[in-house]
Simulated scan of single mutants.
Amino acid sequence: MSQLESSLLDRNGAKPDIWSREASATQRLIPFSELASALAKAGNQPVGVEITNTVRLPELEPHFDRLALIAITFPSFSDGRGFSIAKSLRNAGYRGSLRAVGPLIADQFAYALACGFDEVELPPHVASRQPAAIWLAAARAFRATYQTSHQTGGKSILEQRRAARGRLA
């Protein structure tokens, strides 16, 4: 398996990437600045767009039905704006694939999935330091969360506590 393939993970582990940033690719992941022209040329082809964490929901929402993938870049693992964008996209009704792109750490995997991300694309230096097995173990280590999960519909810690109090009353 190549380094490129091993750097894309979903909740089941490493997966091949069907999207490419190469201009000649059939399923091309395009920068946000090229979205309008790509949509005009795409016809019925799926479109994938890579956005920074400064793009606002109203800029994407009109195109939800045409976007098969939205990849949100994280400039560093400590910049959490991408998580907020993912959650906002899911709350607004986006049903396509969401990808986190950047130097996240394995401890953030469960949270990324709970926010609505389907997959995480890691830079080679992160993927070589933290292989897929570490990411999967980290995702399974967190059973209770402070947020309601978009993936599983799981209840947050607060919702679980309220339900328990209701049973005791």
Rank of each mutant, 00 (worst) to 15 (best):
F77M: 12
R162C: 04
F83G: 03
R161N: 08
P46R: 09
V126W: 09
P123V: 07
S7Y: 00
A137F: 10
Q160H: 00
S2K: 05
E59Q: 12
N91W: 00
S156H: 03
T73C: 12
A92W: 01
E61P: 00
V47M: 04
G102R: 07
L89A: 14
L98R: 10
V49F: 12
S7R: 04
V126C: 07
K155Q: 11
G96C: 09
R140Y: 00
I30C: 11
R66I: 03
F117I: 09
G116Y: 04
F83W: 07
K87N: 14
G154D: 08
V49E: 02
K155E: 05
E61M: 08
A133Q: 13
G43A: 08
F32E: 02
T26L: 14
F74C: 04
V47F: 13
G80Q: 07
L9H: 01
R143D: 09
Y146V: 12
R162Y: 06
I18Y: 07
T26M: 10
T54R: 07
D10E: 05
I105A: 15
P62T: 04
L168H: 05
P31R: 10
L4V: 00
S7F: 00
I51K: 02
P75G: 11
S156F: 02
Y94L: 14
T145R: 11
A163S: 09
R167S: 12
S37E: 12
S88N: 13
I72H: 11
H150R: 10
A92S: 15
T26F: 12
I105E: 08
P123Y: 12
A14T: 13
D17H: 00
L29V: 04
A14F: 01
A114C: 10
P123Q: 08
S84R: 02
L104D: 08
E159I: 02
S78V: 10
S76C: 08
P131Q: 12
A163M: 03
I51L: 14
T152H: 06
A110K: 05
R143Y: 00
P62A: 03
L113A: 08
E22T: 07
S24C: 12
Q160F: 00
E59C: 02
A144P: 00
Q108F: 07
I72F: 14
V101G: 06
N12L: 15
V47P: 00
L9N: 02
L136A: 10
F77H: 13
G153Y: 07
